[in-house]
């Protein structure tokens, strides 16, 4: 069953699910001192698939959000003599308790787990042409959702923030080559424990659900900060992405027939 309600992550019904698919384009600022001391800037494209549903946990007040996003960026060096091509996949799952301080306002907060896999390729370097990115984190996720009436329809605005608190990430050592790691099997602190001091990461998203006919369109802005400072190597990926997509809300209906009727 499908309806055009813009409500997200909300409602007491445990069988209500929303699926959102967003496409985005934006600005990417990239630093990886393993490849270059310069910041590269350019364009990023992103696709985000998000699923929200309520669980039966804590009397149905725990909402689960499962999101998967992929991005590809093409960035120039300050003098445009070299390029970085970067890509990655992020998967996040969060379980958040829901409060309703006001009838049209919902606040959600809870733990999350995230995994990131990616790469950066520099078109100019020789034995250090690329950097692999891999990380797993656990942290906190929070969101505030406000429904309001406008033009005789119900709209929904959402702000969401995710902050990893502790995790593990892959990194070569300071001038360790990938030949040493993968061809020779020489490991040297290549799996690093991360915390907000040495790997301050933050993901924020502001979105608005607009009812359009019987459909719901979502527009959003995402600010991503992914950074690390391990093994004396510094990295950052700062992104500002504008997204647009659609939201589908489903309600699972239990069939009312007997097994013998099948």
């Amino acid at each position: 069953m499908h309806n055009a309600s813009p409500a997200q992550d909300t409602g007491p019904m445990t069988r209500l699910r929303t699926h959102a698919t967003l496409f985005g384009v934006g600005y990417h600022n990239l630093l990886d001192t393993y490849l270059s001391p310069s910041e590269y800037t350019g364009t990023t494209v992103r696709i985000l698939r998000e699923h929200n549903r309520h669980t039966r946990l804590m009397k149905g007040n725990i909402a689960m959000q499962n999101s998967l996003q992929g991005n590809l960026a093409y960035c120039n060096s300050p003098t445009e003599d070299a390029k970085d091509i970067a890509g990655g996949v992020d998967w996040t799952i969060a379980w958040r308790y829901q409060w309703s301080p006001r009838t049209n306002l919902k606040v959600l907060a809870g733990p999350m787990a995230a995994a990131h896999l990616g790469f950066v390729y520099n078109t100019r370097n020789g034995n250090n042409p690329a950097q692999a990115r891999a990380a797993v984190d656990i942290g906190l996720s929070a969101a505030a959702i406000c429904d309001f009436r406008l033009l005789n329809r119900t709209w929904s605005a959402r702000y969401q923030i995710e902050v990893p608190l502790i995790g593990l990430m892959f990194s070569p050592n300071y001038t360790q080559s990938y030949y040493e790691i993968f061809s020779l099997g020489h490991y040297d602190h290549n799996v690093c424990v991360t915390n907000p001091v040495q790997a301050f990461n933050l993901n924020q998203m502001l979105s608005l659900d607009l009812p359009v006919g019987t459909h719901v369109v979502r527009v959003g802005y995402q600010c991503g900060i992914r950074q690390s400072h391990v093994n004396h190597l510094k990295t950052h990926d700062w992104t500002h992405t504008f997204l647009v997509g659609y939201v589908k809300t489903f309600q699972l209906v239990k069939p009312r027939y007997r097994t013998s009727e099948l």
């Binding site: 270059s36 310069s38 003098t79 020789g126 034995n127």
Partner: peptide, 17 residues
């Protein structure tokens, strides 16, 4: 050897391992 670069875009190569 590894590579790096200067602010003016010149490429620098050096022994690293």
């Amino acid at each position: 050897p590894f590579h790096s670069e200067l602010p003016n875009g010149w490429s620098v190569r050096f022994s690293a391992c």
